[in-house]
């Protein structure tokens, strides 16, 4: 790596009680890199990316995000979190606010932007995810795919340096998956640093710089997407690919 990595994991370990969920994770992510993380369920993929914005806390090792080390007595955790955007599998839009307000509230209260400015920014992002006509509606009135695109826009409004995607298409009906993936592909093309936990291999091939395969809490294999999917080297990866391909 020529420049400093924007995310650094150094011998990171985490336990849920007695269960060793992350084992000796070493990871470096450069600015603008697009990483896809895949693996069987329970392998710790979600836990790992949730450590990046401190939704989960690690017990051993070092995590450095954008030059700031994440420790126990982190004072400006809210500030760090606003630099790292996250999109969830269950969208988690605020149901009691309109779509527009969902996008505005963070900018207004955290970044302290005037409401007018925040609304303008919100509308530009709604345009990017192609959903401007729903601005006045409530999340309950939108389809799953629409809600997820709004969720992406909401994170983007905070102008994050890093975007985390946690299985964002897994809860969608098949015909809505494409619209969300298209938005993510556009985002990748503009150079956003992205960590994507997903099963969508087509997406990985199109966009990812690296694929990371995790199993039982550790990184088993890393490679370029084509090389990984066509020719998985480790036995576990081979089993996994075999199972996933079987269902296509």
């Amino acid at each position: 790596m020529s420049e400093k990595p924007v995310i650094l994991f150094d011998k990171v370990n985490k336990w849920f009680g007695d269960f060793h969920v992350l084992r000796d994770i070493d990871l470096k992510v450069a600015k603008g890199e697009r990483i896809v993380i895949c693996g069987p369920s329970g392998s710790g993929k979600s836990t790992m990316i949730r450590c990046i914005n401190r939704l989960e806390e690690h017990q051993q090792g070092t995590i450095v995000v954008d030059g700031v080390e994440l420790t126990d007595d982190l004072k400006h955790i809210d500030h760090i979190r606003s630099e790292v955007g996250m999109v969830f599998q269950s969208f988690n839009l605020f149901p009691h606010m309109t779509v527009l307000n969902n996008l505005v509230i963070g900018q207004h209260l955290v970044r302290r932007l005037p409401k007018m400015e925040a609304e303008e920014i919100a509308m530009t992002y709604l345009e990017r995810v192609k959903i401007t006509d729903q601005a006045g509606k409530y999340p309950g009135q939108l389809s799953g795919g629409q809600q997820q695109r709004v969720a992406i826009a909401r994170s983007l409004c905070m102008n994050p340096k890093i975007m985390l995607f946690d299985e964002v298409t897994s809860a969608l009906d098949p015909e809505m998956v494409k619209e969300v993936l298209d938005v993510m592909i556009d985002l990748a093309r503009e150079g956003m640093t992205m960590l994507v936990v997903t099963h969508e291999m087509g997406f990985a091939r199109t966009v990812a710089d690296r694929v990371i395969f995790m199993d039982e809490g550790q990184i088993i294999e890393e490679n370029t997407p084509d090389a990984f999917f066509d020719n998985p080297a480790s036995e576990r990866a081979q089993i996994f690919i075999g199972q996933v391909l079987h269902h296509l």
């Binding site: 939704l55 979190r81 606003s82 955007g85 996250m86 969830f88 963070g106 955290v110 909401r154 905070m158």
Partner: peptide, 8 residues
């Protein structure tokens, strides 16, 4: 979590 992730 969503609120936390936008820095509330």
């Amino acid at each position: 979590e969503a609120a936390g992730s936008i820095g509330f």
